[in-house]
């Protein structure tokens, strides 16, 4: 999902850079306006959660059809830390990936920040909080949907940038990007749910949504834990399998 240099034209990367800078500024302002209590929860975890998401992004998993994907972590961070801290954390991760590892271009860095550190957390947080409000008893579904939509939103943003730049026509790039990322998003959802459960189980982040999953959510959770090799509820898995 990291766009290299020369894929985007000047007006596109420049616009993305301006919007990303404004979004980071807005996120910082929003964090400063949070209550003392909220800040005391989220701020001390930003460093460690950022390091975790960076590491998880290195683990490409194969998806059917000869492609791979990796975690973006936008939903994971938005759910555990909140929207504004997740924007700041992912921006730092994306910027360091370009500067230290040549992952994502230097000129188009603003576009990569926009896709993965602004749009993805916005979509993830939007879907999560909307679903939690509408279906308060189905937290696991909200987490899964949040992760999947965050990846789709980032992929759509990247496709739009490529099309607007004239690199490749809309009609081919949008379905291609969304098609592959619909599969990659399933991996994102499984890893996000596993990581949230691991975090909850260890009691590391008390603010992570701690409601016990019920019904279908619990079954999905049990299955999602298996590929990640995490201690799933054995009985639940046996019952489904």
């Amino acid at each position: 999902m990291h766009i290299p240099d020369n894929f985007l034209d000047t007006k596109t990367w420049a616009t993305a850079a301006v919007v990303s800078t404004a979004a980071i500024g807005g996120a910082v302002r929003s964090i400063r306006h949070k209550s003392e209590e909220e800040m005391a929860r989220a701020i001390p975890m930003m460093g460690a959660m950022g390091a975790f998401v960076f590491a998880a992004m290195m683990i490409n998993f194969p998806v059917p059809g000869g492609t791979s994907g990796h975690l973006v972590g936008a939903a994971l961070l938005a759910i555990t830390l909140g929207l504004a801290p997740s924007i700041v954390v992912l921006s730092v991760v994306v910027i360091l990936q370009a500067l230290l590892f040549q992952d994502g271009g230097l000129v188009v860095m603003g576009a990569n920040v926009f896709n993965m550190a602004v749009i993805a957390p916005l979509a993830g947080a939007g879907v999560y909080y909307t679903l939690r409000r509408v279906f308060p008893r189905h937290g696991s579904w909200a987490e899964l949907a949040s992760a999947w939509f965050s990846v789709m939103a980032a992929a759509a943003a990247a496709a739009v940038e490529l099309a607007v730049s004239g690199t490749v026509p809309w009609i081919v790039v949008l379905p291609a990007m969304l098609g592959w990322h619909a599969l990659i998003g399933v991996g994102e959802a499984a890893i996000t749910l596993s990581a949230l459960r691991l975090i909850n189980r260890a009691g590391i982040l008390p603010q992570a949504n701690g409601t016990a999953p019920t019904g279908a959510g619990k079954r999905v959770e049990a299955l999602a834990m298996v590929p990640a090799g995490l201690p799933a509820d054995r009985e639940e898995v046996d019952r489904i399998a």
Binding site: P62, T67, G69, H70, A158, W180
Partner: peptide, 10 residues
């Protein structure tokens, strides 16, 4: 980690 191209590379 998988060495296959990621979504955008593909």
């Amino acid at each position: 980690a998988s060495r296959l191209p990621d979504g955008l590379q593909r």
